[in-house]
Simulated assay, not measured.
Amino acid sequence: MRIFPPMATGYRLIGAPVNLAGLELRDVRARIVTDDGRRVLVTEGEIVNLRREPNRPPPLSLSVRGANGLARYVWTTPAPKARLEGAETIAFSARLASPPEDGTEVFVRFAQAEDR
């Protein structure tokens, strides 16, 4: 699919997994901590290079969503490294001071060009 990306649509239609970036987010978790009396949302996880060759991870896009599923706050943070070696895994951490009170979940994905 990297050679001919338009084939990705066909693979999706038959239910096959498609990952053109060759990257995956794993073990993502979020928690609220108190820092100097302020609430801080800490989101952590791992970025995994699924390829055997080096890969450049894009920034991460994070959104705090409310109970209705709508984004309450969205931000972008750079990946912790500009280049991952083949099959390399690296930890990431993102912090948000004073997150929305009505946030119920955090959604993390790789930022697309239009997000940057």
Results as ranks from 00 to 15, higher is better:
Ile32Asn: 02
Arg56Asn: 14
Arg65Phe: 02
Leu70Gln: 01
Arg29Pro: 00
Ala21Asp: 14
Arg72Trp: 07
Asn55Glu: 15
Ala67Tyr: 11
Gly37Tyr: 09
Ala67Trp: 11
Gly69Leu: 15
Asp27Leu: 10
Ala30Thr: 00
Asp36His: 10
Val74Ile: 01
Leu41Asp: 02
Gly69Pro: 15
Ile47His: 00
Val28Leu: 08
Asn49Cys: 08
Asn55Lys: 07
Arg52Ile: 04
Leu20Thr: 11
Glu53Asp: 15
Arg29Leu: 15
Gly37Met: 08
Glu53Gln: 13
Val42His: 02
Arg31Lys: 08
Val74His: 03
Arg38Pro: 01
Leu50Gln: 15
Ile32Phe: 00
Leu60Ser: 12
Val74Glu: 13
Asp27Cys: 00
Pro59Ala: 14
Ile32Val: 05
Ser63Met: 15
Tyr73Asn: 05
Leu41Met: 06
Gly37Ala: 07
Gly37Trp: 10
Gly66Asn: 09
Pro59Tyr: 03
Leu70Arg: 00
Val40Pro: 09
Ile32Tyr: 02
Ala21Val: 01
Glu53Thr: 14
Arg72Phe: 07
Val48Gly: 06
Leu50Asn: 05
Arg31Val: 09
Ala30Cys: 04
Glu24Gln: 01
Val64His: 09
Val28Arg: 04
Val33Pro: 05
Arg51Cys: 04
Leu60His: 08
Asn68His: 12
Pro58Thr: 04
Gly66Met: 11
Arg51Thr: 07
Gly45Glu: 10
Arg65Leu: 14
